[in-house]
Structures are given as C-alpha cells and as structure tokens.
C-alpha cells in the first residue's frame, strides 16, 4: 500500500503552477524537502519551487521546515510569504 500526501498551492504559486491541489505518493520517512524536489524535477513551471522566490511550507496547517518528516495523509501547503493585514 503506497502512502499519499496532499499538496496545496496558494496565491502566486497556485497561478504559476495552474494547480491548487494534487496528491503525491511518498516513501517511508519522506520529508517536505523531498516532495519539493520531486515536484521541481517536473521542469518548468514546477522548478519555481526551487527558484529564487522563497517558498513557505505548512504541514497540516502549521508552519513547517523542509526537514519535516511526513506521515501518510498529511496536508502540505506551499505558498509565497504572506501579505495580509
């Protein structure tokens, strides 16, 4: 049985990738950094995930670091620095 995570994109990233959400199979002990690498290897426009613009990470709606280890069913969100208020 392969484990799957959901990846959501917001704001500029969502528009650039023309994707608001996708599902991705992950291996055991996979990290957010590995998920980002996998997506960035798809080539343009996905390489923006490893480009110059900073990408913020949330896992299960809490800010997380690239080294965060994922569990099956986790919800990852990738987005640009926030600009509310």
């Amino acid at each position: 049985m392969s484990a799957v995570v959901t990846v959501k994109f917001f704001a500029r990233l969502r528009e650039t990738l023309q994707t608001d959400e996708l599902e991705l199979p992950i291996g055991e002990q996979a990290t957010v950094a590995e998920v980002i690498d996998t997506l960035a290897r798809r080539g343009a426009p996905w390489d923006v995930l490893k480009g110059e613009q900073p990408v913020m990470i949330a896992v299960n709606q809490t800010m997380a670091r690239p080294a965060h280890t994922l569990e099956p069913g986790d919800e990852i969100a990738l987005f640009p620095p926030v600009t509310g208020g």
């Binding site: 704001a11 500029r12 800010m63 600009t83 509310g84 208020g85």
Partner: peptide
C-alpha cells in the same frame, strides 16, 4: 497586528485600472 501580517496565510493582489493584477510582496519592515 504585527504578528498577523507576517504569519497568517493571507495574500494580497493589486488590481489595476487596466484589469491587470499582480501579487503584493512581503515587506522587510513588516
């Protein structure tokens, strides 16, 4: 207010008269 501006996940887009739009960048001062 200060913490909300840099940690709550909101994003602003400016819509101009010509119908174009662009995302606002986070400010270093914030």
């Amino acid at each position: 207010m200060d913490a909300l501006k840099t940690s709550a996940p909101f994003w602003k887009k400016e819509i101009t008269e010509d119908g174009e739009s662009h995302w606002v960048e986070q400010k270093a001062s914030d």
